[in-house]
Amino acid sequence: MSGERMSAIVSVKDVTKTYDGGFTALKGVSLDIEQGEILALLGPNGAGKTTLISVICGMVNATSGTVEVGGYDIVEKFRGARSLIGLVPQELSLEPFETVLNSVKFSRGLFGKPRDDDYIERTLRQLSLWDKKDARVKELSGGMKRRVLIAKALSHEPRVLFLDEPSAGVDVELRKDMWEIVRGLREDGVTIILTTHYIEEAEAIADRVGVINGGEILLVKDKAELMSQMGQKQLTIELHQPVTQMPEALSGYNLSIGNDGYCLEYSYDTRGDRTGITSLLSDLAAQGLMLKDVSTSQSSLEDIFVGLVEGAA
C-alpha cells in the first residue's frame, strides 16, 4: 500500500473487527496516514468507514490488530493517543437541551484542556456559530448542528481530525465553507481524515484517496497519481464517411468502432510519454478518412471508484 512512510501520524496495522452478532466489518485493514495530509476514505454504505474510525477513536474495540496515533498505542496509551484526536461523528449526536456554548466548552474540558474563552469564541465565529452560542441545540437546523459537532471536535485543538461524512445533509454553500475550514486546518498542520460517498468531495480537497469496500482497503493513492495512473483518456474521432471495417494499417492501435462506423474511439494512457495521437492522426489521413470532429475525455475518480468496487464484488 503506502509502503514505508516516515511521518505516519496514524498507523493502523492488520485491524479486524467482528461485531457481537458475528458480522465482520473490518477484514484486516492496514493504513498509514501521514502527518498534515487530507485523506479521503471513499466507500459505499456499509463499507466499514465508520467502524474503522470508531476503532481508531476508541468507541469500538478492535477484534485484532493495533493502532498507533502520534506514536501512542490507542489501548495502552489511550490518553496520549486520544488527546491528539478530534472526531466529528456521522450521526448528529448532541444533547438537545444544552446551549451551543456549554456543549463546546464541555468538550474542551472533557479533553483535559484548560479553559480558553478566546479560542472557543474564535472557533465558533469561524463556523458562523457565535450568534447562536446561547441557543439550545434543539433549536438549530441540521447544518448548524453539524457545525456544532465540528466546533466540539475543534474545541480541544486536535492534531488529527476525523470527519465522518461531513457533508451529509449539508447544502452546497456550507459544504464549500467546510472545505475552506478543512484547508485552513491543514495549513495549521492538522491531519484530516474524512469519509465520504461523494467523489467530488474527495477530488476537491483530498491529498490522498483511500477506497474501502467490504471491510477491506482496496487502495490508497495520491489523488493526482491515482487519476493519472488509472485515468485512461478517451479520444473520440467523428468521421464524415462511415468505416465498416477497421483498415489493416490501423490494427496496431487500440481503436474501436462506434456509432455505425461514424465514430472511432481511441483509449490511451496519459502516463505514457508517447500517447500515439500524432501517428494515429497521420495514419488516419493516409487512409483517406475525413475527420469531422475530435474530442477527448478523462475518466473521473468516480469511474475509477466504480470500477474498483465492482471489480472487488
Binding site: C57, G58, M59, F78, R79, G80, A81, R82, S83, I85, L87, P89, E91, S93, L94, E95, P96, S107, L110, F111, G112, K152
Partner: peptide, 15 residues
C-alpha cells in the same frame, strides 16, 4: 448519553 448517542464523546476522550 447512551440514548442520544453523545456517549461517543466520553468514549473518545482521554479520560
Amino acid at each position: 448519553p447512551k440514548f442520544i448517542g453523545t456517549v461517543y464523546e466520553l468514549l473518545s476522550a482521554p479520560v
